[in-house]
Amino acid sequence: MENLAVERKFVISSSPHVRSPETVQKIMIDVLIALVPAVVAAAVFFREEAIIPIIISLVAAMGTEFVLVRKGGFFSDGSAAVTGVLLALCLPPGVAWWICVIGSATAIILGKYIFGGLGSNTFNPALVGRAILLASWGGRMTEWLGPIDLRSTATPLADPGYGAPLMDLFTGNVAGSLGETSAIALLIGGAYLMYKKHINWRIPGTYIISAFILGTLLSPVGTQFDVTSGLFHVLAGGLLLGAIFMATDMVTSPVTPKGQLIFGAGCGILTVLIRIYGMYPEGVTFAILIMNALTPLIDGATKPKIYGEVSK
């Protein structure tokens, strides 16, 4: 090389040579930001009965992940923090500290690591944690406190005939799990995730619409046409938390546009069917877990048409 003073070595790699600044960790941080309104709503309505379980779950989830992975620091890719907060948001207020710890550890270990870690898990880790808690300590998992006064009460879902005022359901002024109660806080978080393009409308949209339609048409005693019942199904319980934050979990939901529509609709239908006919008053957890299991099949069956596809 006559023109250059020294022989230089240059890096060789496959194109493209530029990468977008987006990272997995940034996505997880955005999900955590999107959960802030729900956490604040929980703190307002349930005060320390919410704040303590959320902190314990968060630390327990991150701690479990740190012990298992031991790289990338305590926060690591941020997915454990998301799991911890999501799990806490579907626990009842004032739940025992050890329930939080067992739930978080189970979510991380059985929900994620036995499958091979983030990306390989079939089921939403937080929901795995919740399902196991529900099966193991059903009583403690369904002891509800009323908002503000923090007195023992029933979740509106346990008695859908009576119902709660829809406006209370919308603002969150009802009994229920920590993050389930305030529809508006969840919608703000969902809007943020859509704005950041981390989720799209397909799964939450079809989830909510299918639950609304089925909730309007179906009652425990037969068919009906009751729009209030439909709205109740959408706003009560964990449906919005599930539709916006759990069903949209990238890892465990379909990647194809058509698959996402099927997935969301399946979640909505199963949720209402479990609520009306099942043994649990709430159906979101199992509806999403069942659809999680079907995700690989849905993806395989909904391969998009390619550019210039020639029919064979």
Binding site: L118, M250, V251, V255, I306, Y307
Partner: peptide, 25 residues
């Protein structure tokens, strides 16, 4: 040299693929 992390199936590659393929798959 970026560390290669597991696919989280976010679907961004599918959204951008001009040939409408599933690059992740």
């Amino acid at each position: 040299k970026e560390e290669i992390l597991p696919c989280i199936k976010c679907g961004r590659c599918i959204d951008v693929c001009p040939a409408y393929l599933l690059p992740n798959t």
